[in-house]
Write a protein that binds this DNA or RNA. Sequence first.
DNA 1: CATTTATATGCTCATATGCTCATATATTCA
DNA 2: TGAATATATGAGCATATGAGCATATAAATG
Lengths: 130, 130
Amino acid sequence: MSNEKYLDPDRVARVTARAPSNDTLRWVADWFGTLGDPTRAPLLHALSVDELCVGDLALLLALSQSAVSHQLRLLRHRRIVATRRVGKHVYYRLHDEHVASILQLAIAHADETPGHGAAASQTTRQRRRS
Amino acid sequence: MSNEKYLDPDRVARVTARAPSNDTLRWVADWFGTLGDPTRAPLLHALSVDELCVGDLALLLALSQSAVSHQLRLLRHRRIVATRRVGKHVYYRLHDEHVASILQLAIAHADETPGHGAAASQTTRQRRRS
DNA sequence: CATTTATATGCTCATATGCTCATATATTCA
DNA sequence: TGAATATATGAGCATATGAGCATATAAATG
Protein backbone atom coordinates (compact mmCIF):
# COMPACT_ATOMS: atom_id res chain seq x y z
CA MET A 1 0.00 0.00 0.00
CA SER A 2 2.74 2.41 0.82
CA ASN A 3 4.08 3.85 -2.34
CA GLU A 4 7.70 4.80 -2.31
CA LYS A 5 7.14 7.52 0.18
CA TYR A 6 9.11 8.49 3.20
CA LEU A 7 8.48 7.27 6.68
CA ASP A 8 8.77 10.82 8.01
CA PRO A 9 7.78 13.17 5.20
CA ASP A 10 7.80 16.10 7.60
CA ARG A 11 11.36 15.60 8.70
CA VAL A 12 12.50 15.00 5.17
CA ALA A 13 10.76 18.16 4.07
CA ARG A 14 12.59 20.19 6.69
CA VAL A 15 15.86 18.65 5.65
CA THR A 16 15.24 19.28 2.00
CA ALA A 17 14.24 22.86 2.64
CA ARG A 18 17.52 23.64 4.31
CA ALA A 19 19.72 21.63 1.98
CA PRO A 20 22.45 23.56 0.20
CA SER A 21 22.85 22.96 -3.50
CA ASN A 22 24.54 19.78 -4.60
CA ASP A 23 27.39 21.85 -5.93
CA THR A 24 27.93 23.49 -2.59
CA LEU A 25 27.87 20.21 -0.73
CA ARG A 26 30.23 18.67 -3.22
CA TRP A 27 32.58 21.60 -2.84
CA VAL A 28 32.43 21.35 0.94
CA ALA A 29 33.11 17.63 0.85
CA ASP A 30 36.06 18.17 -1.42
CA TRP A 31 37.38 20.93 0.79
CA PHE A 32 37.12 18.84 3.94
CA GLY A 33 38.67 15.95 2.13
CA THR A 34 41.61 18.16 1.33
CA LEU A 35 42.16 19.02 4.98
CA GLY A 36 41.41 15.50 6.09
CA ASP A 37 44.67 13.82 5.28
CA PRO A 38 47.39 12.83 7.74
CA THR A 39 50.02 14.56 5.64
CA ARG A 40 48.14 17.69 4.69
CA ALA A 41 46.64 18.52 8.07
CA PRO A 42 50.02 19.02 9.79
CA LEU A 43 51.28 20.80 6.72
CA LEU A 44 48.38 23.22 6.73
CA HIS A 45 48.63 23.76 10.43
CA ALA A 46 52.28 24.69 10.01
CA LEU A 47 51.38 27.17 7.31
CA SER A 48 48.67 28.58 9.53
CA VAL A 49 51.44 29.79 11.83
CA ASP A 50 53.80 31.18 9.22
CA GLU A 51 54.75 30.82 5.61
CA LEU A 52 57.49 28.31 4.88
CA CYS A 53 59.51 27.18 1.92
CA VAL A 54 59.29 23.67 0.56
CA GLY A 55 62.55 22.42 1.99
CA ASP A 56 61.78 23.56 5.50
CA LEU A 57 58.37 21.98 5.29
CA ALA A 58 59.90 18.69 4.24
CA LEU A 59 62.41 18.77 7.08
CA LEU A 60 59.87 19.85 9.64
CA LEU A 61 57.33 17.22 8.68
CA ALA A 62 59.93 14.55 8.00
CA LEU A 63 58.71 13.97 4.48
CA SER A 64 60.47 13.67 1.17
CA GLN A 65 60.73 16.76 -0.97
CA SER A 66 58.67 15.01 -3.59
CA ALA A 67 55.86 14.15 -1.24
CA VAL A 68 55.65 17.70 0.03
CA SER A 69 55.74 19.14 -3.44
CA HIS A 70 52.99 16.84 -4.64
CA GLN A 71 50.77 17.80 -1.75
CA LEU A 72 51.50 21.46 -2.26
CA ARG A 73 50.52 21.18 -5.87
CA LEU A 74 47.21 19.71 -4.79
CA LEU A 75 46.67 22.52 -2.33
CA ARG A 76 47.70 25.09 -4.90
CA HIS A 77 45.23 23.83 -7.44
CA ARG A 78 42.46 23.97 -4.90
CA ARG A 79 43.49 27.50 -4.01
CA ILE A 80 44.10 26.59 -0.42
CA VAL A 81 47.67 27.81 -0.45
CA ALA A 82 49.43 30.57 -2.33
CA THR A 83 53.07 30.97 -3.22
CA ARG A 84 55.75 33.59 -3.29
CA ARG A 85 59.05 33.02 -5.00
CA VAL A 86 62.29 34.28 -3.47
CA GLY A 87 65.23 33.30 -5.56
CA LYS A 88 65.48 29.56 -5.67
CA HIS A 89 63.01 29.17 -2.85
CA VAL A 90 59.25 29.14 -2.97
CA TYR A 91 57.39 30.21 0.11
CA TYR A 92 53.96 28.74 0.69
CA ARG A 93 51.27 30.36 2.79
CA LEU A 94 47.57 29.83 3.33
CA HIS A 95 45.52 31.40 0.59
CA ASP A 96 43.05 32.85 3.05
CA GLU A 97 42.16 32.63 6.70
CA HIS A 98 39.38 30.09 6.34
CA VAL A 99 41.58 27.08 6.70
CA ALA A 100 43.32 28.51 9.73
CA SER A 101 40.11 29.31 11.54
CA ILE A 102 38.50 25.98 10.82
CA LEU A 103 41.64 24.14 11.85
CA GLN A 104 41.61 26.13 15.06
CA LEU A 105 38.01 25.15 15.68
CA ALA A 106 38.64 21.49 14.95
CA ILE A 107 41.66 21.37 17.21
CA ALA A 108 39.63 22.90 20.00
CA HIS A 109 36.98 20.25 19.44
CA ALA A 110 39.62 17.56 19.46
CA ASP A 111 40.96 18.82 22.76
CA GLU A 112 37.57 18.72 24.37
CA THR A 113 36.76 15.32 22.93
CA PRO A 114 37.51 12.50 25.34
CA GLY A 115 39.54 9.64 23.99
CA HIS A 116 41.67 10.89 21.19
CA GLY A 117 42.54 7.53 19.84
CA ALA A 118 40.48 5.21 21.84
CA ALA A 119 37.38 4.58 19.86
CA ALA A 120 37.67 7.46 17.53
CA SER A 121 39.36 5.58 14.78
CA GLN A 122 40.56 2.11 14.13
CA THR A 123 43.79 3.30 12.64
CA THR A 124 44.69 5.64 15.44
CA ARG A 125 46.42 3.47 17.95
CA GLN A 126 49.22 5.18 19.69
CA ARG A 127 48.92 6.44 23.20
CA ARG A 128 51.83 6.92 25.49
CA ARG A 129 52.67 8.81 28.56
CA SER A 130 54.95 11.77 28.20
CA MET B 1 69.89 14.73 14.12
CA SER B 2 72.80 16.21 12.36
CA ASN B 3 72.78 19.82 11.55
CA GLU B 4 70.49 19.77 8.59
CA LYS B 5 69.72 23.37 9.13
CA TYR B 6 66.51 25.01 8.19
CA LEU B 7 66.47 27.94 5.87
CA ASP B 8 64.30 29.88 8.33
CA PRO B 9 64.96 28.52 11.80
CA ASP B 10 62.96 31.32 13.35
CA ARG B 11 59.83 30.58 11.39
CA VAL B 12 60.18 26.88 12.00
CA ALA B 13 60.63 27.51 15.70
CA ARG B 14 57.42 29.52 15.83
CA VAL B 15 55.62 26.79 13.95
CA THR B 16 56.96 24.08 16.20
CA ALA B 17 56.07 26.00 19.30
CA ARG B 18 52.44 26.21 18.31
CA ALA B 19 52.09 22.74 16.89
CA PRO B 20 49.46 20.51 18.49
CA SER B 21 50.47 16.99 19.39
CA ASN B 22 50.76 14.46 16.63
CA ASP B 23 47.82 12.61 18.10
CA THR B 24 45.68 15.69 17.95
CA LEU B 25 46.63 16.43 14.38
CA ARG B 26 46.02 12.86 13.39
CA TRP B 27 42.65 12.95 15.05
CA VAL B 28 41.75 16.18 13.32
CA ALA B 29 42.84 14.83 9.96
CA ASP B 30 40.80 11.71 10.49
CA TRP B 31 37.81 13.75 11.53
CA PHE B 32 37.98 16.04 8.50
CA GLY B 33 38.49 13.04 6.32
CA THR B 34 35.28 11.64 7.65
CA LEU B 35 33.34 14.76 6.72
CA GLY B 36 35.18 15.11 3.46
CA ASP B 37 33.40 12.56 1.37
CA PRO B 38 30.79 13.22 -1.30
CA THR B 39 28.43 10.72 0.28
CA ARG B 40 28.92 11.56 3.92
CA ALA B 41 28.84 15.33 3.67
CA PRO B 42 25.24 15.46 2.38
CA LEU B 43 24.31 12.73 4.80
CA LEU B 44 25.69 14.63 7.75
CA HIS B 45 24.15 17.85 6.61
CA ALA B 46 20.78 16.15 6.49
CA LEU B 47 21.24 14.86 10.02
CA SER B 48 22.26 18.32 11.12
CA VAL B 49 18.71 19.42 10.37
CA ASP B 50 16.86 16.51 11.93
CA GLU B 51 17.27 12.89 12.84
CA LEU B 52 16.25 10.42 10.16
CA CYS B 53 15.92 6.68 9.79
CA VAL B 54 18.06 4.70 7.40
CA GLY B 55 15.42 4.17 4.77
CA ASP B 56 14.53 7.83 4.52
CA LEU B 57 18.19 8.73 4.27
CA ALA B 58 18.63 6.29 1.43
CA LEU B 59 15.63 7.66 -0.44
CA LEU B 60 16.56 11.26 0.20
CA LEU B 61 20.16 10.85 -0.92
CA ALA B 62 19.33 8.45 -3.71
CA LEU B 63 21.63 5.77 -2.37
CA SER B 64 21.21 2.09 -1.77
CA GLN B 65 20.21 0.96 1.68
CA SER B 66 23.47 -0.90 1.92
CA ALA B 67 25.61 2.07 1.02
CA VAL B 68 23.88 4.24 3.59
CA SER B 69 24.18 1.60 6.26
CA HIS B 70 27.88 1.15 5.63
CA GLN B 71 28.53 4.85 5.90
CA LEU B 72 26.43 5.06 9.02
CA ARG B 73 28.46 2.33 10.59
CA LEU B 74 31.60 4.28 9.87
CA LEU B 75 30.12 7.40 11.42
CA ARG B 76 28.87 5.41 14.38
CA HIS B 77 32.29 3.96 15.09
CA ARG B 78 33.83 7.40 14.99
CA ARG B 79 31.12 8.64 17.35
CA ILE B 80 29.94 11.22 14.90
CA VAL B 81 26.39 9.96 14.88
CA ALA B 82 24.23 8.29 17.49
CA THR B 83 21.22 6.05 17.10
CA ARG B 84 17.81 5.53 18.57
CA ARG B 85 15.74 2.48 17.80
CA VAL B 86 12.00 2.72 17.27
CA GLY B 87 10.51 -0.60 16.40
CA LYS B 88 11.97 -1.81 13.16
CA HIS B 89 13.45 1.58 12.40
CA VAL B 90 16.68 3.10 13.57
CA TYR B 91 16.90 6.85 13.76
CA TYR B 92 20.29 8.46 13.28
CA ARG B 93 21.25 11.84 14.63
CA LEU B 94 24.47 13.79 15.08
CA HIS B 95 26.30 12.73 18.18
CA ASP B 96 27.06 16.33 19.15
CA GLU B 97 26.89 19.81 17.69
CA HIS B 98 30.48 19.95 16.48
CA VAL B 99 29.79 18.58 13.06
CA ALA B 100 26.81 20.82 12.54
CA SER B 101 28.67 23.99 13.45
CA ILE B 102 31.70 23.19 11.32
CA LEU B 103 29.50 22.24 8.40
CA GLN B 104 27.74 25.57 8.79
CA LEU B 105 31.07 27.38 8.69
CA ALA B 106 32.28 25.49 5.67
CA ILE B 107 29.07 26.11 3.77
CA ALA B 108 29.34 29.80 4.50
CA HIS B 109 32.88 29.69 3.24
CA ALA B 110 31.76 27.92 0.10
CA ASP B 111 29.10 30.50 -0.53
CA GLU B 112 31.55 33.32 -0.35
CA THR B 113 34.16 31.54 -2.42
CA PRO B 114 34.05 32.31 -6.11
CA GLY B 115 34.68 29.46 -8.42
CA HIS B 116 32.44 26.61 -7.58
CA GLY B 117 29.16 26.33 -9.38
CA ALA B 118 27.90 29.40 -7.61
CA ALA B 119 24.38 28.12 -7.81
CA ALA B 120 22.39 29.75 -5.08
CA SER B 121 21.93 27.40 -2.22
CA GLN B 122 18.94 27.73 -0.02
CA THR B 123 21.11 28.48 2.93
CA THR B 124 22.25 31.60 1.20
CA ARG B 125 18.84 33.11 1.22
CA GLN B 126 19.62 35.31 4.18
CA ARG B 127 21.78 37.36 1.92
CA ARG B 128 19.14 39.86 0.84
CA ARG B 129 20.01 43.45 1.37
CA SER B 130 22.65 43.88 4.00
C1' DC C 1 77.49 28.54 -20.50
C1' DA C 2 78.02 24.77 -16.88
C1' DT C 3 77.09 23.59 -12.35
C1' DT C 4 74.67 23.52 -8.24
C1' DT C 5 70.62 24.01 -5.54
C1' DA C 6 65.50 24.33 -4.95
C1' DT C 7 61.31 22.95 -6.57
C1' DA C 8 58.01 20.64 -9.84
C1' DT C 9 56.07 16.82 -12.19
C1' DG C 10 55.07 12.33 -15.06
C1' DC C 11 54.83 7.64 -14.27
C1' DT C 12 54.06 3.73 -11.53
C1' DC C 13 52.82 0.85 -7.77
C1' DA C 14 50.76 -0.31 -3.51
C1' DT C 15 47.15 0.59 -0.64
C1' DA C 16 42.77 2.41 0.89
C1' DT C 17 38.01 2.96 0.31
C1' DG C 18 33.23 2.96 -1.34
C1' DC C 19 29.97 0.41 -3.55
C1' DT C 20 27.23 -3.81 -4.91
C1' DC C 21 25.61 -8.36 -3.99
C1' DA C 22 24.20 -11.76 -0.98
C1' DT C 23 22.98 -12.80 3.41
C1' DA C 24 22.39 -12.27 8.43
C1' DT C 25 20.03 -10.14 12.35
C1' DA C 26 16.21 -7.70 14.52
C1' DT C 27 11.49 -6.53 15.23
C1' DT C 28 6.56 -6.58 14.31
C1' DC C 29 2.46 -8.87 13.23
C1' DA C 30 -0.69 -12.62 11.77
C1' DT D 1 6.06 -19.87 14.88
C1' DG D 2 6.58 -17.98 10.25
C1' DA D 3 6.26 -14.19 7.02
C1' DA D 4 7.37 -9.46 6.18
C1' DT D 5 9.97 -5.33 6.81
C1' DA D 6 14.05 -2.60 8.33
C1' DT D 7 18.71 -2.54 9.10
C1' DA D 8 23.46 -4.51 9.44
C1' DT D 9 27.36 -6.80 7.73
C1' DG D 10 30.92 -9.71 5.15
C1' DA D 11 33.23 -10.43 0.72
C1' DG D 12 34.79 -9.01 -3.53
C1' DC D 13 35.62 -5.66 -7.04
C1' DA D 14 36.69 -1.27 -9.15
C1' DT D 15 38.56 3.01 -8.48
C1' DA D 16 41.03 6.73 -6.26
C1' DT D 17 45.11 8.39 -4.26
C1' DG D 18 49.61 9.11 -1.78
C1' DA D 19 54.33 8.43 -2.24
C1' DG D 20 58.77 7.00 -4.47
C1' DC D 21 61.76 7.35 -8.41
C1' DA D 22 63.61 9.55 -12.09
C1' DT D 23 63.84 13.59 -14.39
C1' DA D 24 62.60 18.28 -15.80
C1' DT D 25 62.53 23.24 -14.95
C1' DA D 26 64.17 27.48 -12.68
C1' DA D 27 67.30 30.41 -10.52
C1' DA D 28 71.83 31.67 -8.57
C1' DT D 29 76.79 31.35 -9.13
C1' DG D 30 81.18 30.75 -11.09
